[in-house]
Design a binder for these strands. Structure first.
Length: 270
DNA sequence: CTTACCGCCTGTCGGC
DNA sequence: TGCCGACAGGCGGTAA
């Protein structure tokens, strides 16, 4: 999926046209997402006004007050702002049609995303047990250090666990570990507080820089205006197997950790 | 509680 | 050129 920077980029791209707008209707062309889109969702939102939008973890929340649409982009989802004469593309599964001529169009080839309703989104089972936002002050080295005591899993799997910290996926986990000089397979319990301090700083830094670049586009992702994200050119290790390390020139390795490709420099990351 | 693994889907790419 | 398997940015469910 879109990780945190891609979801944040999407949110920023749709916030202005959607905020305060009235929902004309919800057009569902294919409801077979990760969970089926509820049958009554259209009736539930039709004619109502969008009060605000927010991101929590990798979820986009469209608040109608009371109640929210809970929208996740899955692995391959994207949203675009279009109008009624915009031609449909393959996998354009949902349109949120607003009365101001604006249409929010959701495209998701793999259909791993979801579109659900909750009276209280943050209390929804999918969101209830999520860890802290990585850009919040409460997320820091001390938090990671305490949370990791007794955890034998690889540090990369640990920071990708949404109960530990949200928003960090396969790309940015690899990048943050490179910047912090930590080998992705290292056990989470065997990392010092000082190194967790550095890791927290680099998680925040890489996410912020990626947001500033509109996210990373590898294949499916695009911003709400259709442009790609531009962070790919700043990736140090992700997808760079056998290419030279940007710091020392050694070839980048790729090892499977927790069923996911994991890129690192065997010289710079210990 | 933790950890490891499966599977949901379509599209693309590399190897033969 | 065509076919086939491996793999892809996520994540809930299950089993041990």
């Amino acid at each position: 999926m879109p990780e945190l920077p891609e979801v944040e980029t999407t949110l920023r791209g749709i916030e202005k046209p959607l905020s305060g707008a009235k929902i004309e209707c919800l057009r569902i062309r294919d409801s077979r997402l990760r969970w089926p889109i509820p049958d009554d969702l259209g009736a539930r939102v039709e004619g109502r006004r969008i009060v605000s939008l927010q991101r929590r973890a990798k979820y986009i929340l469209i608040n109608l007050e009371p109640g929210s649409l809970i929208w996740h982009l899955g692995m391959s989802g994207s949203m675009r702002i279009v109008n009624k004469s915009t031609e449909l593309r393959k996998h354009d599964h949902v349109d949120l049609v607003l009365s101001n001529e604006v249409i929010l169009r959701y495209n998701d080839p793999r259909r791993f995303g979801c579109l659900l309703w909750a009276d209280d989104a943050l209390a929804h089972p999918l969101l209830r047990s999520l860890g802290p936002e990585p850009l919040d002050a409460e997320f820091n080295g001390t938090y990671l250090y305490k949370k990791s005591r007794g955890r034998r899993i690889a540090i990369k799997s640990f920071i990708m666990d949404q109960k530990v910290v949200v928003g960090v996926g396969n790309i940015y986990a690899s990048e943050a570990l490179f910047l912090a000089g930590i080998r992705p397979a290292r056990q989470a319990s065997r990392i010092s507080l000082a190194r967790y301090d550095a890791l927290a700083v680099h998680i925040k830094g890489v996410l912020q820089r990626a947001i500033a670049q509109g996210g990373t586009t590898l294949r499916d992702f695009s911003q709400a205006d259709g442009r790609p994200g531009y962070f790919e050119q700043q990736l140090h290790v992700y997808g760079r197997e056998k290419q030279p390390c940007t710091l020392c020139g050694h070839a980048i390795s790729n090892k499977v950790i927790g069923q996911r490709a994991s890129y690192y420099c065997p010289k710079c990351q210990i």
